[in-house]
Design a protein around this nucleic acid. Structure first.
Length: 229
DNA sequence: CCCTGATTCGC
DNA sequence: GCGAATCAGG
């Protein structure tokens, strides 16, 4: 896998959007392992995961190690004994992601995904008033939907009753985010890291019906690849 | 069973 | 650094 600045940016973006590792992997045409592995190396903030409590506790239970964690699969050779607690808490990500991102605005909106394990797609988001400086979740979602329904996708909302929208003010205080000045459609390809001062969107005129400009659409809409369903 | 993410470790 | 293999919880 060639982790270009591009792919890394996308990985980080998708990651912070709360997509599952497998989902990210599919979108990037890589395995979830690759996603997780890379995410770790990048120091991306760990998202709520099923497990990971194992190491949480310990410190008593008598014996010193008392942390039965990994049991060395099979290729486990005489590995180093210690060097396990450095994950205790250390420092999470510098700050970037900050809050907000965790909101994972809309998980799987109406994408024809077979199911949504953890989250409830229908669940209307109360629109948390908090910060959340990332107005780009929808965009990537569309890429998915678009890719899954390339030709015929006239029904964005199959079932979910459209939430009443008295208005659609930018409830996300995109303070500091450099948004495109001109109104109307603009390429929402993220430039830089969400949460950092320099972050902004491409802003170029997008392709008709696409959230991205021609340049970035070419990157966003990759080949379909198997969808395993 | 399926899903998920985390970790280890050969490469 | 990369990611398959593996572990492990839901």
């Amino acid at each position: 896998m060639e982790w270009t600045d591009e792919t890394i940016a996308r990985l980080r973006d998708l990651w912070s959007q709360g997509l599952s590792t497998a989902e990210i992997g599919r979108q990037l045409s890589i395995t979830k392992n690759a996603v997780v592995g890379k995410a770790h190396r990048l120091g991306l903030p760990p998202r709520p995961s099923p497990i990971r409590n194992r190491k949480a506790k310990d410190g008593e239970t008598g014996t010193t190690e008392a942390t039965p964690r990994r049991k060395s699969p099979s290729r486990a050779k005489a590995a180093e004994p210690a060097a396990a607690d450095l994950f205790a808490d250390k420092d999470a990500a510098p700050a970037k992601v900050s809050a907000g991102v965790v909101e994972k605005v809309a998980e799987k909106p109406a994408a024809p995904v077979r199911k949504a394990p953890s989250v409830a797609p229908e669940a209307a988001k109360p629109t948390p008033p908090v910060t959340a400086s990332r107005p780009l979740p929808a965009a990537a979602k569309e890429t998915v939907a678009a890719r899954r329904e390339p030709a015929a996708a006239p029904k964005p909302e199959p079932r979910v009753a459209p939430a009443p929208r008295p208005a659609m003010p930018p409830r996300f205080s995109t303070a500091g985010i450099d948004r495109p000045t001109r109104r109307g459609p603009s390429c929402c390809w993220p430039i830089g890291d969400p949460g950092t001062p320099g972050f902004h969107f491409c802003g170029a005129t997008p392709l008709p019906g696409k959230p991205y400009c021609a340049e970035h659409a070419a990157i966003a809409y990759v080949k379909i690849r198997d969808r395993r369903d």
